[in-house]
Design a protein around this nucleic acid. Structure first.
Lengths: 337, 337
DNA sequence: CTGAAAGCGCTTACAG
DNA sequence: CTGAAAGCGCTTACAG
């Protein structure tokens, strides 16, 4: 492994002169020496050690992406996560920083991970609770949340108007003549996105005097997959004739619902209408094409990165939160009754 | 930021005693002191600095995942990449290591990135060429390739019998009575997976005296998306009546083909049959369900991690390459003529 | 323009 | 069982 010292020795200068060349402090080095050193660096293919650099500068240039998940789950099978993380990696690289991806099960792990690598900043996806305050000893590290609903002040968050999303879905289904509407959600991990979508949804139903029916509310046992959706599909099939529509809190879940229902001979939308959430490309690929509540995941992720780097540039930039809008995209998975 | 020294001072011992406690060298510390120190560590929420540790141990415990891609492309929209990277992150964490994800455009970047963080190991996806030898000055770092076709020895690779995959697809289509068969591939990035699928495909066609027709061979201009597939869909539509089947080298591409063809009034499989590659969950969600050549992406990625850690455990373990099998999954996207 | 010294937070021999 | 010293690869003041 070739080090700064090696280069310095070969050039016959002190290490700090080499350091100046590397860091572009050209004012501090004569042109001739700079060129000599540059040549040696290239020829020997020298790359500065980022860990050593980070240690003395107290800045690692690492951005942590933290996603809630257990060790059994491949978090990137979720199109939402995959799209968001992919965008983050791209944007972080454009800033000349590095991305480390952490899957974290407990809140306590977050602080540990951020501290271990003395991360420059963090983007945290999927932790909703006020427990966020428990992220230990990492107050000095700029953090941006995606889809957090913590009430804590001084937290930067890029979120969605999930409540409105739930309302749009409910209103649309009601406009189409549906009144017995099921609700299907992923495993609940605290108060958050899903809760707000549910509340918006319920608000509209209540406004139309549709009482809550717990038999119509489903929650997967694990992350979206055919298996974790199978029992819900079976219940829904039994409910056919009564329940006429389903609001799924993600397109991913909706797609498994539709596939499952088809397999059991239940037609969508003829027998049961389905509305999703997210508007991922999949919506246009399945049959029927999925009516859904749209959000722009790449924009959301890019915004999170932009805010994070704004905070890195200006230490006292203050917390910045934005709530993005949603809209309804009408396709073919909901029928008029 | 609390450091080793702080803990040592509070405990009234030397830093190295604290270090021994942290690293579990209990034989070197008296029980009473160990407990005292442990308590302080927990109370102060001390986390060792991984960069400093890595610097002296010359081992970062970082595994790099390197994926070919340009700055404009979100590499994780590809289900293959998302599934593979998600699995790697999971498995690497289980080993107590960290995952850094790099998107890399040029081969030269790889060496730089590996060196900069003095990475413990690397998993490299999507670089096929013999240029792999050009990964500079990172000979000491264990590397596993996924889907590489380099002829270099001493390279560990987890690959697929892509040639057989192409053969299976061609044979199946021919058995179903097709002879005018189009081929659709992603943007080519050197010799590799796609090339081998193509060659297997062509071998069978030639064996049946079906000559090559360049008008039937398509290559996307950028990574799979509705846009980059649109012109191919248009050409295929023009070819309707002549071309009766398409072999797409990924399910992802196949799905965009089917959606596009439907939109132009071309029915699959009635007008054109389609066979894909990968067997991702999407296959069962689209209509018609996609006939495809199956591989197990999660297994592939997990195997790569397993081999990598075997090499980390035993420095002179030697290169280890495996070629996984493929099989045909029959669904509804190919019709008998 | 150039360099010698100190130090970032840790661990690894080496002494006692 | 415990500690003082040296050093991992780099940069940051401080002198000249």
């Amino acid at each position: 492994m070739v080090t700064l010292k090696d280069i310095a020795q070969e050039a016959g200068v002190s290490p700090m002169t080499v350091s100046n060349v590397i860091n572009g402090n050209m004012a501090r080095v004569s042109r001739s020496k700079a060129e000599l050193i540059q040549g040696i660096i290239e020829r020997r293919n020298y790359v500065p050690n980022a860990a050593a650099r980070g240690l003395v500068c107290n800045s690692s240039r690492i951005i942590a992406v933290i996603i809630r998940g257990t060790s059994e789950v491949n978090i990137l099978v979720s199109p939402f996560n995959a799209t968001a993380v992919g965008t983050i990696i791209q944007k972080v690289k454009a800033h000349g920083y590095y991305t480390m991806v952490y899957v974290v099960d407990y809140l306590e792990e977050i602080g540990r991970n951020l501290r271990a690598w003395n991360v420059s900043g963090a983007i945290i996806i999927g932790f909703f609770d006020d427990d966020i305050g428990l992220i230990h000893d990492a107050d000095d590290i700029p953090k941006i949340f995606i889809d957090s609903y913590s009430h804590l002040r001084r937290i930067s968050n890029v979120g969605l108007d999930d409540h409105k999303g739930g309302e749009l879905a409910a209103q649309y289904l009601i406009d189409k003549g549906h009144r017995e509407i099921a609700f299907v959600a992923p495993p609940l991990t605290g108060l958050g996105v899903i809760q707000h979508r549910y509340e918006g949804f319920r608000r509209i139903l209540s406004a139309h005097n549709i009482p809550r029916n717990k038999d119509y509310e489903f929650c997967q046992e694990s992350t979206a997959s055919p298996d974790s959706t199978a029992w819900i599909v079976r219940r829904l099939t039994d409910l056919r004739g009564r329940v006429t529509a389903v609001f799924a809190t993600s397109d991913h879940i909706a797609s498994y619902l539709i596939t499952g229902l088809h397999a059991l001979g239940v037609r969508v939308p003829e027998d049961i209408s389905v509305i999703g959430f997210d508007n991922i490309p999949l919506c246009m690929q399945i049959t029927p094409q999925l009516t859904t509540i749209a959000q722009d995941i790449e924009h959301k992720a890019a915004l999170a990165v932009a805010i994070l780097f704004r905070q890195l540039a200006d230490k006292n930039a203050g917390a910045e939160s934005v709530t993005l809008d949603v809209s309804l995209i009408e396709r073919d998975s909901v029928r008029q009754r």
